[in-house]
């Protein structure tokens, strides 16, 4: 692909802290290479802001290779930007052309309060996982992989669900701010494996209770989450979660 430079108009959400009302600020950035990543474009802008003695734009990032789930920007009305199955850090500036205007907002959900600018507090996800997204095994040496046979189809389905990086794009895309795709991935990947069997019912009940407590909405199966998920987590996981929840509630001890 041919390399080119571009000038862009950015409209970025600025907010000092969770109590601040926040506002959009306009920036013009020049000399942006088509080979830069979206975050590198922000690095260029931040360098300039620092040189000018202004406050740089705060945004989350870590691995910058699409696997950690830290980056979280809502770009021109879509979480993680225009590319499918992609995170912001893997979005490259060749997706844009000279003179484009880009609106960048943080994830919007009551359960994800803004910490600063484009950074949101996603610890609600950690608390949902803590409520049941684990297996109770004695730790020790790694068990030999072949000691517990698991059929390939199940292992694949479990792995596909375990691909979830917990970035929160599903919540950001959902009109109900529902965390159901995230939760369903966490429940499904353990429910499909024998290791997840002992806490299977307790897990789904506790995790759903925690999700509701954190203030996420209910799922209405619109599919917006699946369409925006950088790891292509399937919507059918939500139907599996519903089934797990139904079985757990119908067969509850008391």
């Amino acid at each position: 692909m041919e390399h080119y430079n571009m000038s862009l108009h950015l409209k970025v959400w600025r907010q000092n802290n969770s109590r601040d009302k926040g506002h959009f600020e306009n920036y013009k950035v020049d000399g942006i290479s088509s080979e830069m990543s979206f975050l590198e474009m922000f690095d260029v802008l931040n360098e300039r802001l620092i040189t000018e003695g202004k406050e740089p734009i705060a945004f989350d990032h870590d691995c910058r290779e699409g696997i950690c789930g830290m980056c979280s920007m809502y770009i021109n009305g879509k979480p993680h930007g225009p590319w499918k199955s992609n995170t912001v850090c893997q979005l490259h500036m060749r997706a844009y052309k000279d003179g484009d205007t880009i609106v960048v907002e943080p994830w919007r959900a009551n359960a994800f309060p803004v910490i600063k600018d484009l950074m949101v507090d996603r610890s609600a996800f950690d608390r949902i996982v803590q409520a049941g997204g684990y297996i109770s095994v004695n730790t020790g040496n790694a068990v030999d992989g072949n000691s517990l046979p698991i059929e390939k189809d199940k292992a694949d389905a479990s792995f596909a669900a375990a691909m979830c990086i917990g970035c929160g794009a599903c919540v950001a895309a959902c009109k109900n701010s529902s965390a159901m795709l995230f939760l369903s991935a966490k429940v499904a990947h353990l429910a499909l494996l024998p290791q997840g069997e002992p806490e299977r019912k307790k897990r789904v009940v506790s995790m759903v209770a925690q999700m509701d407590k954190e203030g996420f909405g209910a799922c209405t199966n619109t599919g917006a989450c699946e369409a925006t998920c950088p790891k292509d987590i399937s919507l059918s996981n939500i139907a599996r979660l519903n089934q797990e929840y139904l079985i757990a509630s119908l067969t509850a001890d008391k």
């Binding site: 409209k11 009305g77 609106v103 109900n176 909405g217 209405t220 989450c225």
Partner: peptide, 18 residues
């Protein structure tokens, strides 16, 4: 469900995913 997003988006996701 509507109460779960107090501050909305400036640019809506619209029909891009649903």
């Amino acid at each position: 469900n509507r109460s779960k997003r107090a501050v909305g988006y400036a640019v809506d996701y619209g029909s891009k995913g649903s």
